[in-house]
Nucleic acid binder design. Structure first.
Lengths: 297, 297
DNA sequence: CTAATAGTGTCTTTAAGACACTATAAT
DNA sequence: ATTATAGTGTCTTAAAGACACTATTAG
């Protein structure tokens, strides 16, 4: 193309003389909200283990937020996408490569990192519980799977002259052995005229680094939001699973109990039955299923 | 906090000596996919005008992609969020301030901008057709509303040894007066084991700058995806509207005709009736409604 | 009257909720 | 028999689809 601009330059000439300039640029990090499902210990040999939703966190060994727990993540390097940076981080932290991953949101609040201007392009990853390796090996940054509790603790509506504000406060509690991290995250939507704008605000924060409680809340809400409409939960399942296990996963994410018969009708098209069964254990063995790739969304 | 790191520094000391360093950093732009609904010309005085979905584009006056059409956008400045940058851009381009806006995705393909390393944090904005001002005033960058056509033209499934790939090719056509822009965007999901990864790929591109066809496709899909599950379409409506107009908006976004009775049942809780009616025009006048803020999502 | 849009009534179809029932295993 | 889980049958309820019908205006 040889179109010339108002300075008489062709595109090629323009690019050759182009100076990236002295404009300040942010660092961009790719942070990962990594979920998995694990079994709780069972007290009774014939009872099924309960499922819990877990999140991978890394204990920070250096400033800032030394000793606090943070999402795995790292800076995006030149010549790679945020996606690649996220996958690199995932690989380093979990040893896993082929997992389900999707972009959540980019967080850009100027003061969110005390060091410098850092934006976080956040990804959610889902890994199947059976594939999860143990706690992170290198002593520098200790990794651990935290049990998640996330529940609505306050709902509010405030009237302004030109509209109103709705807010929902959620309590996020993360537990691992003796450690308990706690945060209150508010999701606030301001309605004015035809406009609406939703923000996450950090109300309280104990033990989590940066604004990571917000990113985690964002991940949980995305996971919950997609639970019923898509087949996203299937990515948390191992190769072979029972329908009861799948139902437990839906229940622990959605936060409510489901009816067995209705659940089975609903997921029927997402799974294919196999001829395998669970080992008998004091009750009728259960048929094992696998994902039905044809119908995943 | 006076915890010291392995170099014996407190957080305060660490931050004082912290050097942002020589790591390369990307520029981050906030680009806007701005939709509105407009009426087409009506040929018959008693027929209702049809609705069309439109997108705001700016004609580039300088390199690169001189003469091509691009999404409104600009670089994010220090001490502002990407959101604020997007709103600033929206205000400059449309004069509007309070509109519905939500973050779409961040695009970070290294070569997407030939000048330098630029990521695009993309936002979608919805503005009500009656609020839309004319074509952009300043001669430097000409702005125009393009009529959108977006349709599936090919669906494919490819089998690999360790899984398979599903792809959907969409044809995006944007029209404004004599100008017609055309692109083929492929949405590709690769399934391997329990993993799935979705990407947008630009197959063909005529007249659109950068990778903006991908960002536009992303916006259209978000809008379509939220159409049925949320009340997002209400943000495209003026203060007062008829249920037929609302139905037309749903139809033009969703790309399929709806049944009147069922539609009215479905949106009943999203609107409140008023005592106003449309001006009679050769047929029964229609009751006007407004948004029901109580039930918006 | 016709053409056009507005608005409602109701029967059918489909999906979800509720809940009872049968089946299988180990002790 | 008891405990515990697996799996199905079926009635009820709610929502969506289909389509016909009535209502209102201008010419």
């Amino acid at each position: 193309m040889s179109v010339r601009d108002r300075n008489g330059l062709t595109e090629e000439e323009f690019l050759r003389q182009y100076d990236a300039g002295d404009y300040a640029r942010p660092s961009v990090a790719a942070d990962m909200v990594i979920f998995t499902i694990m079994d709780s210990e069972r007290d009774n040999y014939r009872k099924l283990p309960e499922k819990t939703l877990k999140l991978l966190l890394i204990r920070r060994a250096g400033h800032p937020y030394i000793g606090h727990w943070a999402l795995p993540g790292g800076f995006v390097r030149p010549h790679e996408t945020t996606e690649q940076a996220a996958r690199r981080e995932l690989q380093e932290e979990t040893g896993l490569d082929s997992v389900y991953m999707e972009q959540l949101q980019t967080f850009s609040e100027p003061g969110r990192d005390p060091r410098t201007w850092v934006m976080s392009c956040t990804y959610m990853a889902l890994i199947d519980g059976s594939a999860v390796e143990v706690e992170g090996g290198d002593d520098a940054d200790q990794a651990a799977w935290f049990e998640i509790s996330y529940r609505l603790v306050r709902e509010q509506k405030e009237h302004q002259e030109d509209g109103f504000t709705r807010s929902w406060q959620y309590e996020l509690v993360l537990r691992h052995e003796e450690t308990e991290l706690k945060a209150i995250v508010e999701k606030r939507t301001v309605y004015t005229n035809s406009a609406a704008q939703t923000d996450y605000i950090l109300i309280e924060n104990e033990g989590l680094a940066f604004d990571h409680a917000k990113l985690i809340a964002c991940g949980i809400e995305r996971l919950r939001g997609k639970l019923d409409e898509t087949s996203i939960a299937l990515h948390l399942m191992p190769e072979l699973f029972t329908l009861t296990q799948l139902q437990q996963v839906y229940e622990v994410i959605g936060g409510k109990e489901l009816l067995k018969a209705a659940f089975r009708r609903k997921v029927a098209h997402l799974v294919v039955e196999t001829d395998h069964y669970t080992e008998p254990a004091g009750h009728r063995p259960s048929r094992l299923y696998r994902r039905n790739w044809e119908n995943l969304s």
